[in-house]
């Protein structure tokens, strides 16, 4: 059993491949998390413009990309768009897909955060002559982010897990590399190793999240 699923020799052989995959997963996360946050911030700030011609398209956009399975979106970008003459590389496809998908999720979280800040905060800042954008930046967003920190972190956790989708468009991230190693060694050990690495990488985040959630509950009670 251990020979099959946790073979030390195979671990040794697969280690460099897996390590390269881990590096790419970390890099990918460092690109797609800020990208999604940026997209979400844009959406959330647009949502505070209470004009129907902003509101409705925005709502449609967010709903659409939240309902659209990210795997389908990614494969469409990678395998569908070339038929329209638009050939993006695997990396670009992942970036666009994450921007659209996780941007919509981050957007909803940040919008809820912005809504949770009392209108009096904005009024106070505006009454002293602070402009709309600076009020958002210095007064509303810091409070908004603090209010939805657990949700933001939880979504980030999902985003990091979702980077494994990159494997279907041949991004050499952790899962893809593990699959490579598996087919080279004819042994499932590399997959198990990848799973262990994912767990070790994400577990601190999960712990942190629990603590934040508990603190939020205590604060509310």
């Amino acid at each position: 059993m251990l020979q099959t699923f946790f073979n030390l020799e195979i671990i040794e052989a697969a280690w460099p491949i897996i390590l390269a995959g881990l590096g790419n997963t970390v890099l990918l996360s460092l690109v797609v998390v800020p990208l999604g946050l940026l997209g979400g911030l844009g959406l959330a700030m647009l949502a505070s413009v209470r004009k129907p011609w902003v509101r409705w398209p925005l709502m449609a956009w967010v709903d659409f990309f939240r309902a659209f399975p990210p795997l389908v979106l990614l494969i469409f970008l990678y395998a569908g768009l070339p038929f329209a003459g638009l050939e993006l590389g695997g990396f670009a496809c992942v970036c666009v897909a994450f921007f659209l998908n996780t941007g919509a999720y981050y957007g909803e979280i940040l919008r809820a955060g912005i809504d949770s800040v009392p209108a009096g905060q904005t009024e106070a800042a505006r009454s002293t002559g602070v402009g709309r954008l600076q009020t958002m930046l210095y007064v509303v967003l810091p409070q908004a982010v603090r209010n939805v920190l657990p949700d933001l972190l939880s979504n980030t956790l999902e985003v990091v897990k979702l980077t494994s989708l990159g494997s279907v468009v041949a991004m050499p991230e952790l899962l893809f590399q593990a699959r490579q190693a598996q087919s080279l060694t004819y042994n499932p050990t590399p997959i198990v190793l990848a799973a262990v690495i994912y767990f070790l990488m994400l577990w601190p985040l999960v712990r942190l999240l629990s603590r934040l959630e508990n603190r939020a509950l205590a604060g509310r009670g």
Binding site: R126, G129, V139
Partner: peptide, 16 residues
């Protein structure tokens, strides 16, 4: 607005 100060019932200080 900088020449017109306003004070609110609920203070509206920035808590952060």
């Amino acid at each position: 607005r900088q020449r017109i100060g306003m004070v609110f019932q609920s203070f509206n200080l920035y808590p952060h």
